[in-house]
Every structure is written in structure tokens, then in C-alpha cells.
Amino acid sequence: MDAPATERGASDPAAERSPRRDRERRAFIYGFVAIAVVAALPTLPFVNDYLLAVVVRALIFIALGQAWNVVAGIGGLLSLGHGAFLGLGCYATGILFNDYGLPPWLGVWVGALLSLAVALVMGTMTLRMRGVFFALATIAVSLALDQLARHYVDLTGGDNGLALKFLGDSLWFMQSRTPTPFVYAGLVFVIAYYWITRWVLGSRLGLQMRAVRDDEVAAAAAGVGVFRTKLLGLLLSAVMTSVAGTLYMQSYQAIDPETAFGLSQAIQLQLPALIGGLGTAWGPIVGGAVMIFLSEATNWGSTKLGVAGIDILVYGLLLLAVVMYAPKGIMGLFAARARGGR
């Protein structure tokens, strides 16, 4: 679905409504089919645990991309350190479970509160300034958390990271031997985050965020509280990222400082929205699916060839291609075709 902003309405008011509604209906059908296919996967005979694990990974990165898309895509705030919120979600859930036996159903909210607090401090300090300060601050916070996680070995396991104590299949502690439950959990996340994105796009906050993204001075002159708008977008995105972090933790059962706060993780969080289409509700979903598919294919390829790191190279080339040929992402290409076809 393209953002209303990229749409050029036809001149006849009667004719301009129906293609839009058609597209909505088609998007709904595609969405329904995609949900049905993913939900049916675990029941199919030829689908093994490896394939399901890939699907879970895709769903988690789609959810993380959807969260990043709120602040960066809709709000135009380039966060290069969203790994901080992912890591806080992972570590909070993991530490509370391992050390205190707290189920992730509760740990998730502790992580979300921590992320909210970190985002609040970070945003209050940097969002009044224009330009690159916010982006730099997000990197700094990630680096600081990385150091903290490495330093407090007793709490976090230090460089080696933290592994969840495994209790066997348990809904209460969100643990499972097979990836199947996480397919459904991931699906719930992606659907919920899709609706949150749709809600933000259609809300007054989303309109103000897009206005701020376009032009801060004009937004202020139009009566938009620029700082407040940016901060709300950041807080929402941070909480979404952190909550998805809990799912990440439960499905991978382990976290370490590099995976949580490292630069490559921060970049991976951005790719779904960048590839799929910034600021759109469908972008991170399409982009995340493409990204994980490519990543698995290149992983397989590099193992066959015996060359490490091909996946990183492919990511880089893909990002270059998107920036050069499809700056509005895959969804932008669809929107352009829809316009051309009319």
C-alpha cells in the first residue's frame, strides 16, 4: 500500500475513489493469503524445522523493521542505534527469567519500560536539535549499552552473552523445542504491528510526524509541537522494538552484546523498511521477507563456495540498488506502476 502522500489523485472525484478502494481490497486479500500460507506452513509434511526457523527469523525482523519504520520511515528520524531497544528487551526478559524466574510475559514489560526510559532521556537530550545529533546519539547509546553489557559479567554474562535456562515446552515461560509456536507468535506480532502502523499513519500524530519529516520549520509555523511529535514517535518505536526483542530472546534463547548492540544488527533492523518502502505499512513486511530470503540464499551459497561474508556483500549491493533505482523501496515501485497503469 502506498502512503497517501505519493498518490496523485485523478481529477474526477467520482473516479478517484474507486482505484484506491480497489487497492485496499487487493492489499487485504494479499494479506489474508499471506497469513493463511504462513499459518499453514507448520502443518505441511515437507516443511522441516529449518524452514520454520527461517520463517520465524523473517517474522521477527519484519516486526523489528516495522518498529523502526515508525520513527524513521514515518517520522524521518534516522535512528542508527535501535539495537539498544532490541537489546534491552532481550536482556531484561532473559535476566529476569534466569535470575528471578520471572516469566517473559512479565519481563517484556520491564524491558519495554527500560526502553521507554532510555528513549525518553535520549530524545529529550537530542530531539530539540536539528540535523545529525539524534543519529549520533543513537549510536552513542548503543555503544554505551554494549560496554555495560560486557562489563557487568555477573548480570549479563559479559562477552559470552546470556543463554536462557531451558525448561522444556512451556507456554508460561514461552519456551519450545520446535519453532512452530514462534511462527504463530511472530505472525501475531507482524499483524499487530501492521495495524499499529496503519493507525499511526491515519492518526493526527502520524500526520504531524510526516509534516515534521517534510519540513520542521513549516511544521512549527503550522502549529505542530515539533519536539513533542518527534519524542512520541521515538517512544512508540522504542517500545515496539523492545517488545519484539522479547520474542527474539525467546525464540533464539540467547543474546550477547554484539548481537544486541552491534552495528551490523542496527543496520539489519533498518533494511526491511529501506528495501520495502520507508513510511509505508506494507514496506517492512515485503522488505523483511525479501531480506531474509536473500540472506538464507547467500548463506547457502557462501557455504557451498566456501567463501564467508557473501551475505554482507549482497546486503550492501541490494541497499545500493534500492537507493539508486528505487529510493521509495519495493512498495514505491508498485505505486509507480499503479499510477502508470491508470
Binding site: 502512503a3 497517501p4 502522500a5 505519493t6 498518490e7 489523485g9 500526520l207 504531524q208 510526516r210 509534516a211 519529516r213 517534510d214 519540513d215 520549520v217 513549516a218 511544521a219 509555523a221 503550522a222 502549529g223 505542530v224
Partner: peptide
């Protein structure tokens, strides 16, 4: 003329409605 180039005309107007 600092308008919002990526917002529709109607959105440009409604964003400032307080």
C-alpha cells in the same frame, strides 16, 4: 512557500488545524 511536499493538499491543510 514552506508547504509539506509529500503530504496531500488536504493533509497540508488539516495538519495545522488546532
Amino acid at each position: 512557500r514552506q508547504i509539506f511536499p509529500n503530504l496531500s493538499v488536504a493533509e497540508n491543510l488539516t495538519v495545522s488545524f488546532l
